[in-house]
Simulated assay, not measured.
Amino acid sequence: MQVRHLLLIAILALTAACSSTKEVVDDNLSEVELYQQAQADLDNHSYTSATAKLKALESRYPFGRYADQAQLELIYAYYKNSEPEAAKSAAERFIRLHPQHPNVDYAYYLKGLTSFDQDVGLLARFLPLDMTKRDPGAARDSYNEFAQLTSRFPNSRYAPDAKQRMIYLRNLLAAYEIHVADYYLTRQAYVAAANRGRYVVENFQETPSVGDGLAVMVESYQRMHLDELANTSLEVLKDNYPNHPSLVDGQFVPQVSDSDNRSWLSKATLGMIESSTPLPPGETRANLDIKKQYQDAKDAIPADLKPKDADGNVIPEPEPEDKSRSWFSYMTLGLFD
């Protein structure tokens, strides 16, 4: 499926979502009737309808017996309806208004859960994307929110699940730091790479990325001819991670080839200004990176998900046309070609 088809599907889905009519809640419903209907909507997964009734219940009966419960269930309805910002806002409001509520730990848990699921969008569900290479902002927020829950309510029934999610998030954040360090290595920014590796070692102990952080430190220090620091890091790596991929027969094997010799200008700008390999006319480094990321994601799609002919064979993609594209074509992703 081409990019234009994916974009068309996304636009149609967005249009359908935006065109949905706003539900009108009967003004004559009592507090009990509103709450019962909202519960029925939640049970039937009609979260938009449940949201409307819970909001009406809260506004019409702010001091009723279901007011606090309606605020809690409104957080859940927003979360299930894929409205993360509204869910977090509702959770923060409940925590601010009811800090001593017996179920306030549930608000903390839903707030962390909303950030946890925020990165899992349409592309992440259907394409084999590496979550450790994506922006870790939501993952970091989720970790901090779960940490608040476990520190303030260690005996909460939601604490065990929050702790398990924190382990996953901590591993993810550490792996992201290693990806950044590897990028600095390939750009020959060895000071930045060494700092990232040391940050992982010092702040993400007991994660699988600690060995990778030590390997980055060894290679960076070797490149900068800081032999004492390199040897110390290498001994720690050998003692704690003797089977690390960077160790072959007890010898350290650098990740970056020595043949990648670049100018001082390229090193100072982290490769943003290249002087060795000229770009084709009308091309940019950012455009090349985007093309490579798209191609890598497409190549990683399992064969059973690719289109097949009547005999069950994977349909090969058509050969790209040998023609130059205008800047307008690139800006619109070829939608108007």
Rank of each mutant, 00 (worst) to 15 (best):
F63S: 12
Y76H: 05
Y76A: 11
E85W: 06
A87F: 02
A86P: 00
L74I: 02
G64S: 11
E73R: 15
P62T: 09
F63P: 02
N81C: 10
K88L: 12
P84S: 14
E83T: 14
A87P: 06
L74W: 00
R60W: 02
R65V: 15
P84F: 14
A70Y: 01
A70E: 00
E83P: 03
Q69R: 15
L74H: 05
L72C: 12
Y61F: 10
A77W: 00
Y76P: 04
G64T: 01
E58N: 04
A86L: 14
R60M: 04
R65H: 13
Y76K: 14
Y79I: 07
K88S: 04
A77K: 06
Y66P: 01
G64V: 04
Y78M: 09
A86E: 03
E58W: 07
K80V: 08
I75E: 07
Q71K: 08
I75P: 05
A77E: 01
D68C: 02
Y79C: 09
Y61D: 14
I75H: 02
P84H: 13
A86I: 03
P84Q: 13
A77R: 07
E85D: 15
I75Q: 07
Y61K: 08
R60E: 05
K80W: 06
E85N: 14
S59Y: 01
E85Y: 12
K88F: 08
E73T: 11
K80H: 12
I75A: 07
Y61S: 09
A87T: 03
R60S: 05
I75G: 00
A87C: 08
A77H: 01
D68H: 12
N81W: 02
S82C: 07
K80T: 07
E83A: 15
L74A: 05
G64E: 02
Y78W: 09
K88V: 08
L72H: 04
I75C: 04
A67R: 04
S59P: 00
